[in-house]
Nucleic acid binder design. Structure first.
Length: 277
DNA sequence: AGAAGGACCTGCACGC
DNA sequence: TGCGTGCAGGTCCTTC
């Protein structure tokens, strides 16, 4: 569920609340699918270490902790329904809690994920190539910092629909179903258009719309469609700004034409047949 | 090479 | 009430 703005909100919130804290104890649920790194190894890597920073890379939350010998990175991918929360130890444990990090001051960081598409893992910087780009970074570019020319070049010669290209994490990081639909609406481009056939002008419009939508969503704490909450359990507000996402059959807010819903790249896709060409 | 489709999970809203 | 269906913010693997 969480896309770039939601992951950014959670990562920033976590950083503000837990940077500098020591992890004294780990509990894990024993659901093997959740743990890309085996639970014993994860527990070993985190117990007794101090949290240096928490940041977002693509849709991954990267928690850097000072290990006994070297700093390691604790990677949290929220999947569709993952939540990362800071709470007091007295709080009752929510169903589908899969990991709890107890901090030295008694608070806890909890990972809760009903559908279990989320993944937890430990990444150790390579000793041979400590400066090598981390594997979780992937080849995709960050949409908030990519230049206009590089953005246009990403889609050149691609026959795939522009929406599928936006969702492809090896091209762009962090764009998911909501922000793909919303940015295409704001750019006036139909989701099925072949990426490689968009004009430079259209792609520049798309980049501008995507950056605007992502920035505004970060400002509003992300989109809470059903169960997304930030590190304090607080919902976001960008869902109130959705123009097409999950509005199939409802009138377009600009021209009143019913919003159309199709399936594209296996995902529900929403657009205005009048405003988007 | 690259794209479609199914698989992985639980929960909820809907219709009968 | 209760069941069956379809759908949900993501990604990975297989197939074509």
């Amino acid at each position: 569920m969480p896309e770039l703005p939601e992951v950014e909100t959670v990562a920033n919130g976590m950083h503000a609340r837990v940077a500098g804290e020591r992890i004294v104890r780990i509990w894990t649920s024993g659901k093997p699918q959740t743990f890309k790194t085996p639970e014993a190894e994860l527990t070993q890597a985190l117990t007794g270490s101090a949290i240096e920073s928490v940041r977002r890379v693509g849709k991954t939350i990267v928690m850097t902790v000072s290990g006994k010998k070297q700093a390691v990175e604790f990677l949290i991918h929220l999947g569709m329904t993952g939540r990362l929360l800071v709470c007091d130890s007295g709080q009752p444990m929510a169903p589908h809690t899969h990991a709890i990090l107890t901090l030295a001051d008694g608070r806890e960081v909890r990972f809760v994920d009903p559908r279990r598409f989320g993944r937890l893992s430990i990444h150790k910087p390579s000793e041979k190539k400590p400066d090598a780009p981390a594997s979780y970074t992937g080849p995709g570019r960050e949409p908030l910092t990519i230049s206009a020319d590089d953005f246009v070049a990403l889609f050149r010669h691609r026959k795939t629909p522009i929406k599928a290209a936006l969702l492809n994490q090896s091209l762009l990081h962090g764009v998911g179903n909501i922000y793909a639909d919303e940015s295409l609406f704001r750019a006036g481009i139909r989701p099925r258009r072949q990426a490689g056939r968009l004009t430079r002008d259209e792609l520049l419009r798309l980049r501008k719309a995507l950056i605007e939508v992502l920035r505004q969503a970060i400002k509003l704490g992300g989109s809470s469609v059903s169960d997304y909450v930030d590190a304090d359990g607080v919902r976001g507000f960008f869902q109130l700004q959705h123009k097409v996402y999950m509005r199939g059959g409802e009138p377009c807010l600009v021209c009143k034409t019913p919003i159309q819903r199709i399936t594209l790249a296996g995902r529900g896709t929403h657009f205005c047949p009048n405003c988007q060409h």
